[in-house]
C-alpha cells in the first residue's frame, strides 16, 4: 500500500504542492534534452545520408573537443582553434570516405556499422596518443553564471547551449529540406546505386555529410566538454543519444530535437519524483523505457520514415 502511494499519489501531490520546483525540473530537463539532441544530431545526419549507424559518433565528439582544447593549450586563440578543428574534421571526413566508405559502396548496413566500430577505436586511440588522457578544462568564453528567475534557478551556459542547439537544428533541417545538396543527401541514403545512376556524386556527398557530422560533433564536444571537462568519458555521451534516436527516429533532424526534449524532461521528472521509490539513479534506464513505450505505437519513431519493403 505504501509503495502504491509512493508511486501513484505522493509524486503528484508533491508536484501540486511545489509547482515552481516542478517548473525548474522541467526546464532543467529541457536544457539537458538539448544537450542530448546535439549528440543525436550527428547520428541522424550520417544515418540519413548514408544509412550507416555511426558507432564512432561519441569518439568523433571526443576527437573534435580534444583537438580544439589541444590547440588552445598550445596558445591558439579560440577562433583559430575552431577553424583548424573544423579543418581537421573535414580532413577526417575525407579520409573516412577515401579509406573506409569507398571500399564498402553498396554493402550491407551491418558491414558499414562494423567499419564504424573500427573507426571508433582508431579515433579513441589517436586522440589519446596525440593529446593525452588528462582532464582538460575548456573555456570558450560563454558566460557560466547562475541566477534566479521567479524562484527558478537558471544558468547562462545552459541557456546559451539551448540557443546554439536550436540554431543548429533549424539550419540543418532547412539545409536537408530546401537545398539541392540536402536532397542529394537524402537520395544517397535511399539507394547508393540509384543515386549514382542519376549523377549524384556519391563520394562528394559522403565527404559533405561526414564533415557536417564532424562540425556537429565539435559543437557537442564544446558544450559537454565545458560542463565536465574534455576527457575520454565524452565518448560515453553517445549512450545518452540512443534513446533520443529511438524515440525521434533515426532519419529526422527535428525528431532528434523533439526526442531529446522528451527524453530530457521525462528522465528528470522520473528521477526527481519517482527515483527515491526505486532506490535512485533510474534516469538512465527510464529513458530507454520511455523510448520503448513510444515504439509500441510508432515503431519508426516519432518522426522517422516508415520503411516499406517488398518481400
Amino acid at each position: 500500500m505504501e509503495f502504491l502511494n509512493a508511486v501513484f499519489v505522493a509524486p503528484f501531490l508533491d508536484i501540486a504542492d511545489s509547482p515552481v520546483f516542478f517548473a525548474e525540473v522541467v526546464i532543467g530537463g529541457l536544457m539537458s534534452g538539448v544537450m542530448y539532441s546535439l549528440v543525436a544530431l550527428g547520428f541522424v545526419l550520417i544515418f540519413k545520408a548514408s544509412g550507416v549507424f555511426n558507432y564512432a559518433q561519441g569518439a568523433m565528439v571526443l576527437f573534435a573537443a580534444l583537438t580544439l582544447v589541444g590547440l588552445m593549450e598550445h596558445g591558439a586563440p579560440l577562433w583559430l582553434g575552431l577553424l583548424v578543428t573544423l579543418g581537421v574534421m573535414v580532413a577526417l571526413a575525407y579520409a573516412i570516405e577515401r579509406f573506409m566508405l569507398r571500399k564498402l559502396v553498396n554493402q550491407e548496413g551491418i558491414i558499414l556499422f562494423m567499419a564504424t566500430i573500427g573507426l571508433n577505436f582508431v579515433l579513441e586511440g589517436v586522440g589519446q596518443i596525440a593529446f593525452g588522457s588528462d582532464v582538460k578544462r575548456l573555456d570558450v568564453g560563454l558566460p557560466d553564471k547562475s541566477f534566479e528567475w521567479k524562484g527558478i534557478l537558471l544558468n547562462t551556459f545552459d541557456l546559451s547551449a539551448t540557443f546554439i542547439g536550436a540554431v543548429m537544428v533549424t539550419s540543418l533541417a532547412l539545409f536537408f529540406q530546401y537545398t539541392p545538396t540536402g536532397r542529394a543527401l537524402r537520395a544517397v541514403a535511399d539507394d547508393h546505386q540509384a543515386a549514382l545512376s542519376v549523377g549524384i556524386p556519391l563520394k562528394t556527398i559522403w565527404v559533405i555529410v561526414w564533415s557536417v557530422a564532424g562540425a556537429v560533433a565539435l559543437v557537442a564536444g564544446i558544450m559537454w566538454g565545458a560542463k565536465a571537462g574534455v576527457q575520454f568519458s565524452l565518448v560515453l555521451i553517445a549512450l545518452k543519444a540512443l534513446p533520443v534516436l529511438i524515440l525521434g527516429g533515426f532519419t529526422s533532424v527535428p525528431g532528434a530535437i523533439v526526442g531529446g526534449l522528451i527524453i530530457g524532461v521525462g528522465e528528470k521528472v522520473a528521477e526527481v519524483y519517482w527515483g527515491p521509490v526505486f532506490g535512485g539513479a533510474i534516469e538512465s534506464w527510464f529513458a530507454y523505457m520511455l523510448a520503448l513505450a513510444f515504439l509500441l505505437f510508432r515503431p519508426q519513431g516519432l518522426f522517422g520514415e516508415k520503411i516499406i519493403e517488398r518481400v
Binding site: V25, G29, S233, K268, E271, A281
Partner: peptide, 15 residues
C-alpha cells in the same frame, strides 16, 4: 542520492 555510471549528467540529483 545515487548517480549512475559514468555520471556526466547530474541535473536531476542537483535539483
Amino acid at each position: 542520492i545515487a548517480v549512475d555510471h559514468p555520471g556526466q549528467e547530474q541535473k536531476a540529483q542537483w535539483l
